[in-house]
Design a protein around this nucleic acid. Structure first.
Lengths: 156, 156
DNA sequence: TATTGTTATACTCTATAACTATA
DNA sequence: TATAGTTATAGAGTATAACAATA
């Protein structure tokens, strides 16, 4: 394989292109799910109960809190998630999966994995794992738990 | 490092998070450049003369042709690019860099590389190269030259 | 008839600001 | 006073449709 030149040698171009392709593939898979691919991410996050509030959930997903409201409205109306007040802080709402939401999530996970493998077809299985691992390491530093600390420090 | 769970184990989450972070960093770097990060990508593509038309350029960058018009209007008005009619097909316009555009591009490239290295700080230099290479391989299959063929076939 | 580029319009998505309730 | 969530509004960004020039 020759070394690419011009835009096609750019990290930004590669990131944008792969992300767009992944988004298109995900959109096909999630079909009529409220909120599309992001709705799926909300379900996945709610399943593990990682985020204790809508705000934290939004930060994790890179979504504004006002958008989270609409997103959760749709998912709640579809009977996939429930908003329960946090006993410790009654301003905050904990997002939990309903049984229906749990089932939907499980069904989607497998199709999504298949779509991702299709997207990563140019790579062998070892390389796919490596790409996932590398991206994850960058992401967790940049936008994952670390960002909460960074923001907390910046606010103090 | 422990294996992440939930959304943070998802390829889609990692891609989105890293792409957003890269976009933020790029936006800081390109500053007042017309079109922001995408304006830079147009300059980078024009520098090598890869794309023979606005339409091809848009496809390469994942941008609608109507958006390309506005984008190029701004860049042309800023004296960074020029639209010259293609002698072979007078409907198409070839996008070329002006001297000013060339200088601007060179100046931006270094700052952008620095910002990207900062983004990829969690990885050592070997891993950064590997991540770039893996992403590039997926992107060139999915959205690069291959997409032109795919779309051409789909249209026939 | 199909395609490149332009323009105008409409639509979607997102952010901003104001409000309520809790802290 | 500050924060979580909601709502309404305004703004940015994007796509759709109609048009002119060329193939």
């Amino acid at each position: 394989m020759t070394t690419p030149s011009g835009v096609e040698a750019e990290l930004g171009w590669a990131l944008g292109t792969v992300t767009r392709a992944h988004l298109r593939a995900a959109q096909d898979v999630v079909g009529g799910l409220p909120g599309g691919p992001r709705g799926y991410q909300v379900l996945a996050a709610a399943a593990t109960g990682e985020a204790g509030s809508q705000l934290a959930l939004g930060r994790q997903l890179g979504v504004d809190r006002t958008v989270m409201t609409y997103l959760l409205d749709e998912l709640e109306q579809a009977g996939l998630v429930a908003r329960t007040p946090d006993p410790a802080d009654r301003r905050a709402r904990r997002i939990t999966l309903t049984e229906s939401g749990q089932a939907r999530l499980c069904a989607l996970e497998r199709s999504l994995r298949a779509a991702e493998d299709d997207l990563l077809a140019p790579l062998d299985s070892g390389e796919r794992a490596e790409l996932r691992a590398l991206l994850l390491r960058v992401a967790t530093r940049v936008g994952g738990p670390a960002i909460t600390c960074t923001e907390a420090e910046a606010l103090s």
